[in-house]
Structures are given as structure tokens and as C-alpha cells.
């Protein structure tokens, strides 16, 4: 689980599970709003990402925009996780 494609696949699967849709329907350009994931769903996803990739994601639900973790789109989330994984391995 160290390569970009694998991270993207797993992120899409986790988001799809939360959104109750098929993973193949999750596009990298989708926002959480597009996927119908609300703030509580997001907190669950963050937890799932941390468990899956063994990383710690700096995220405070009170100020999601200020957190040092971009959740604007699926692609941004994947990039953020890859960066945190690299730092953890670093």
C-alpha cells in the first residue's frame, strides 16, 4: 500500500462506503458534497484513513478550512494522504 494508485483506490473505497455508493462511481474531481458526505461522515472518513494508512491527520471539525489537510476534492485528499505517508516514512 505504498504507491499512489493504491492510495487512491482505498480512499475511493472508504469514501464510497461512507456515501453508500459504488467505489467505481467516485471520481477524483468529486467534492465531499458531491458524494453527499456531511461533517460527521467526514470525521468517520478521517478516522478510517488514519486506520488504513497508519497516519495521523491534523483535522479539527471546527475549522476544516484551517486544518493542514485539504479536503476540497478526492484528489486533494489522496495527495494529502500521500504526503503524510511520505512524512511518516521519512
Amino acid at each position: 500500500m505504498t504507491f499512489g494508485q493504491d492510495v487512491e483506490t482505498r480512499v475511493k473505497e472508504i469514501l464510497a462506503e461512507q456515501a453508500l455508493i459504488d467505489a467505481s462511481d467516485v471520481k477524483t474531481t468529486d467534492t465531499l458534497e458531491d458524494l453527499g458526505i456531511d461533517s460527521l461522515g467526514l470525521v468517520e472518513c478521517i478516522f478510517a484513513f488514519e486506520e488504513e494508512f497508519d497516519i495521523s491527520i491534523p483535522f479539527n471539525a471546527n475549522e476544516p478550512d484551517k486544518s493542514d489537510f485539504d479536503i476540497s476534492s478526492v484528489a486533494d485528499i489522496v495527495a494529502g494522504i500521500q504526503r503524510l505517508k511520505a512524512e511518516a516514512a521519512g
Binding site: 470525521v43 478521517i46 478516522f47 483535522f59 479539527n60 471539525a61 471546527n62 475549522e63 484551517k66
Partner: peptide, 19 residues
């Protein structure tokens, strides 16, 4: 776990409150 806790202070009603 809920990610609603502040790490630094409780600042009710202040625009920069963070939990």
C-alpha cells in the same frame, strides 16, 4: 475522536474559536 476539541483554549463566540 469527535475532532471538536480545542488544543489551546475555549473561545466561545470569538470568530477564531476552534472547539
Amino acid at each position: 475522536g469527535l475532532r471538536v476539541m480545542s488544543r489551546d483554549a475555549c473561545r466561545p463566540f470569538s470568530a477564531n474559536r476552534n472547539g
